[in-house]
Design a protein around this nucleic acid. Sequence first.
DNA 1: GTTTGCATGTTAACGCTGTTAACGTTAACG
DNA 2: CGTTAACGTTAACAGCGTTAACATGCAAAC
Lengths: 193, 193
Amino acid sequence: MVSKKEEIVTVARGLHARHGDAGVSMRNIAGKLGVTPTALYRHYRDKEAVMAAVVAEGFALLVEYLTRSSTPGVLDFMQRFLDFALDEPGLYDIMFLRARRDVRRYPEDFAAHRSPSFDALRTAVEQEMRDGKLRRDNALETTLTIWSHAHGLISMFTLGRFGADAEAFRSIYRSSVRRLYRGVAVPKKRSHR
Amino acid sequence: MVSKKEEIVTVARGLHARHGDAGVSMRNIAGKLGVTPTALYRHYRDKEAVMAAVVAEGFALLVEYLTRSSTPGVLDFMQRFLDFALDEPGLYDIMFLRARRDVRRYPEDFAAHRSPSFDALRTAVEQEMRDGKLRRDNALETTLTIWSHAHGLISMFTLGRFGADAEAFRSIYRSSVRRLYRGVAVPKKRSHR
DNA sequence: GTTTGCATGTTAACGCTGTTAACGTTAACG
DNA sequence: CGTTAACGTTAACAGCGTTAACATGCAAAC
């Protein structure tokens, strides 16, 4: 037996999954639940509170995606992150493309490990720095750079800037990540060592 | 003497500049013009058409920003792009953070030089590849990588993920761009040459 | 066993949104 | 002088989030 609150976010998630867009209203949710819109306000303060609950579920799912890898390398995480975005465009939209009142802020919240998803990537980054795969650098900032690049591409895709061909986009994404790895500049001669 | 159509987009831009957000309605625009909302429909098919006109003005302004540099290097363009985003968060929002019906699509439209702003950056990229500053690589894709990274960061900022301190963000942005330049991976030994 | 109280719902309404249909006014032109 | 186009109006509809006031049923308390 699930609580009413959970039922509401489940329905809200479902509606979002469909027409990804903002086309999910209190009246929609209530309708699907066979209830009048105002009943929802017994359980959530306002619409944004419902969305916050959906976002929380979204992040839980994202973490599940990210930790699904047996080999949790950074490149693997990038792949899983893309999988999540393509599987759940509606969720991605409200999680990363809309202003909310409870967003985690860089750097405080991320430095303090208040974002499990960011932390998963960051841990992998730190590991690969130790392993000599990634340059030794500020791990927090490096994670941000990697995440931003991925988010930039993905958000452009979900806004329709790459057409609808997800496979084509996957390939663009992969090669762009590789480019970030290697850098766009011509490497300077290494002085010594 | 400006046309009614121009007056409308000017007012719409102004409203957007204020509370950046979606808080610009047909009724707002009409009110500022001293006219009833329905009058706007003489000049534009619907709200999205008004927005499209605002977006067009936005891109013109962006190109102006980008070409304001005396030394149109890639790093310079990144700087100007950030300036534009910080000066015009409302414009940035509707230009890059919302789905529209007339978006340029990658790669077709960009390969065909239908985006003056993208092209400005791309030209700089090509130049720096010739100058031996950037790696010789696919210029279109490289430009996309660079743009995506910048857009990812900026969109996070405009959605409040970095607090409100623009100066702090500027510094994060700059160092992240540098990281993209140099690459995050440990460079492989160059085989010869 | 009645009563109290809480959880949960409803109806009616307010003010906001984009948008339409139908109707009016004004100026220009042949 | 009559026609036409440009421009604007009023009234209305359907949708939105949200509030206030009112109902109901069930569980615990006296």
